[in-house]
C-alpha cells in the first residue's frame, strides 16, 4: 500500500476508510454446484478496501467464485469467509452487480435503487433522497422515472451500480458488469466505477474476461485456469490510464495473456 506522500496520481485508500471494507477469504475451498465442482484448492484473501479483479477463460468458474462470495452458493468443501466468519447466505453488506439485466422491469430506475433501502427499512422520504443522489452520481437524474427497458444498456448498468452502492455495502461483487457494452461505453463505465467507489472504502471483487479491464481496475489480478486459482499478481499503478504503456504493466499484460492462452 502506498504511503500518503506518493499519493498524487494514484489515490491511496485512507486508513480510516480501509477499515470499512469487508475482508473476504477462501480457505481450501472447492467451489461449484453440488456434484459439479469447477474450482478446487482455492486459497485467496481479499484485504478490506482492496479491488481485486478475476480473469480467466469463460467457463473457468469466475461467476461461481463470485456467487459463492455473495452467499448464493455454498462452498462444496473448505470455507468462504467474510471478516473471519464463514458465510452462511446472502447479506445486504455484500452487494452483487450482475452481468445481465437484473433490474426489476416493473420498477422505475429510481424504484430499483430504492429497493435495497426499502429492504433495510429506510423511511420513504429518505429512501427517495438517497436514491436520487445516487442516480445523480451516475448521471441518470433525467431518467430516474423511466422503466429499465426504456433506457440503453449502459444506462441500465449504471442504474445497477447505483442500486448496488445505495445501501453503502462493505463489499461489492461485480460479475462482468460491463461485458455486454461496446468499447467506448465500457471505458466510460470503468472511469465512473473508479469515481463512485472513491471514498466508499468498499472491498471490490470484479470478474471480467477482459485483461485490460482487469489491469486497469485491480490492485491485484487473480488468474483462474484449469480448475484452480493459477496466480495472483500485483498490478503496478492501478486505475491510472497513463500507466497503460508503462513497461511493468506491458510485461504483466503479456504474462497474463500467455498464461490464459496456455
Amino acid at each position: 500500500m502506498s504511503t500518503s506522500s506518493e499519493s498524487v496520481s494514484a489515490p491511496a485508500v485512507p486508513e480510516q476508510e480501509a477499515v470499512r471494507g469487508t475482508r473476504l477469504a477462501f480457505r481450501g475451498a472447492v467451489l461449484g454446484r453440488p456434484g459439479a465442482p469447477v474450482l478446487s484448492d482455492v486459497d485467496l484473501e481479499v484485504a478490506p478496501g482492496e479491488i481485486i479483479t478475476v480473469v480467466g477463460p469463460s467457463g473457468c468458474g469466475k461467476s461461481t467464485l463470485l456467487r459463492t462470495l455473495a452467499g448464493l452458493l455454498a462452498p462444496l468443501d473448505g470455507t468462504a469467509e467474510a471478516d473471519g466468519s464463514p458465510l452462511t447466505g446472502p447479506s445486504a453488506g455484500r452487494a452483487l452487480v450482475f452481468q445481465e439485466d437484473a433490474l426489476l422491469p416493473w420498477r422505475s430506475l429510481r424504484g430499483n435503487v430504492e429497493l435495497p433501502l426499502a429492504i433495510r427499512g429506510v423511511p420513504r422520504g429518505e429512501r427517495r433522497t438517497r436514491a436520487e443522489a445516487w442516480l445523480a452520481r451516475v448521471g441518470l437524474t433525467a431518467q430516474a422515472g423511466q422503466l429499465p427497458h426504456r433506457v440503453s444498456g449502459g444506462q441500465r448498468q449504471r442504474a445497477q451500480l447505483a442500486r448496488a452502492l445505495a445501501d453503502s455495502p462493505r463489499a461489492v461483487l461485480m460479475d462482468e458488469p460491463f461485458g455486454a457494452l461496446d468499447a467506448q461505453t465500457r471505458s466510460g463505465m470503468q472511469d465512473l466505477l473508479v469515481e463512485v467507489l472513491r471514498g466508499t472504502g468498499a472491498t471490490v471483487v470484479f470478474v471480467t474476461h477482459d485483461v485490460d479491464e482487469a489491469l486497469f481496475l485491480g490492485d491485484r489480478v487473480a488468474l483462474l485456469g484449469s480448475g484452480r486459482v493459477a496466480a495472483v499478481r500485483d498490478v503496478p499503478r492501478p486505475r491510472d490510464r497513463a500507466a497503460f504503456d508503462a513497461p511493468a504493466r506491458v510485461a504483466l499484460r503479456r504474462d497474463i495473456l500467455t498464461s490464459l492462452g496456455s
Binding site: 452467499g71 447479506s91 437484473a102 433490474l103 426489476l104 435495497p116 429492504i119
Partner: peptide, 10 residues
Amino acid sequence: VWEEAVRTMG
C-alpha cells in the same frame, strides 16, 4: 436473477 438480486440485498 431478479430473485438473486433481492436476496443479495438482504
